[in-house]
Design a protein around this nucleic acid. Sequence first.
RNA 1: GGAGAGGUGGCAGAGUGGUCGAAUGUACCUGACUCGAAAUCAGGCGUAGGUGCAAGCCUACCGUGGGUUCGAAUCCCACCCUCUCCGCCA
Length: 427
Amino acid sequence: MLDINLLRNDLDGVVARLAARGFAFDAATFAALEAERKTLQTATQDLQAKRNSVSKQIGIAKSKGEDVAPILAEVENLKGELAANESALSTLQDKLNGLLLTLPNLPHESVPAGDDESGNVEVRRWGTPRSFDFEVRDHVDVGAPHGLDFETGARLSGSRFTLLRGQIARLHRALAQFMLNTQTEEHGYTEAYTPYIVNPEVLYGTGQLPKFADDMFRVERGGTDGQTQYLISTSEISLTNTVRDTILKADELPVKLTAHSPCFRSEAGAAGRDTRGLIRQHQFDKVEMVQITAPEQSYAALEQMVSHAEAILQKLELPYRVVALCTGDMGFSAAKTYDLEVWLPAQNTYREISSCSNCESFQARRMQARFKNDAGKNELVHTLNGSGLAVGRTLVAVLENYQNADGTVTVPAVLQPYMGGLTTIGG
RNA sequence: GGAGAGGUGGCAGAGUGGUCGAAUGUACCUGACUCGAAAUCAGGCGUAGGUGCAAGCCUACCGUGGGUUCGAAUCCCACCCUCUCCGCCA
């Protein structure tokens, strides 16, 4: 959520920066609502002040044993007017707040301008794509003989659900364990295990709600008619919200958390895209990194976090490139985002495998996550999140990049200890 | 699931429906005393919002949401959470 004071003081500037990311903000409507709010709030508070002082007089008069009937008659008139004002104000503030909740974050000044992914800027490349002396198969064909089973997944749960068994299932588990160990042991993240089902307000905190309800899976508890809850679409949600409604001490920052979790996405708007294979699933695993930092530290932390994600690909010896997303291609909550794209030989291209974002105070304001700064003031923290990495897509990259002519798959050296020493799948 | 207890400021802990945003203690900050510290004394010390150039003034907040009332931390209803015991379970 944007700082409403920024909207009040520099509405044109906000409109321009939102336009840079392709968001058309109806500034006139906002300005009108805000003007209305101002007069209504002032009037309401005046009435409240009047009621409070009269009520106080009643108390004093009663304690002196005086007749309070005349004062009661006076306050009686206030009652209806005040109630009408209060409810109108509350409606208006809900409206204003609802509007504010739909505004995306402002892009950082260092973000390249652009309308869509064609405006993204490659920052660096690592590794050289392997040259194959046989016809490259995609991960679906490579994985099928070893336990990558799309038919059974679909039979149980529909399309975009997959069953893994045997050595593929183990490789999948090995990848997650390897990533989690690297992030905790080498990069200083604290391991976390989080709820996968969360309350709606948590999703408001990180920005999935109210705008992206269609991307989520909703769940209802059997035997109750309680509130709807949601399956997390990333553990960024549960990890970042660990600091909601809290005031951290300055020396507690940065908070660095990581978790391995499943991610559930309805992929409502993705009909027909990436239908083959593991690339786009309703359920996939991810090792997520989250940092909660002081504002001055967040951009340095973003660079570090990208390097933490890169370390996984480097250890796996998978070629990749780092891309700075342009203003038009960034997610709702992000002020700046780097994507990591891994080389997929069957597609002959780089595909997204990690996304690292600095959300600045955007999520913190929604969550009311603050810290006591050096001046002793409560200040909003900055929040960052990044994949380190998406496990399913990493599995795709390993299967494709490490495939052999005879249909076997070489196990990357760093994963062999996690595979009981196995060096070749299907060997 | 059953029975009971409870949720008030950083923490502890008061609070007959009426100058209660909230006693008191403790922690913390500032000053005095001291060579310095401790102890002691004095003062300060919540969050959010509105308004104003500012000093300030005003509003809201005692788990959450409703309700009663001129007035609610206090009364009523619903919900959430915590603790104890029992049951059931992984």
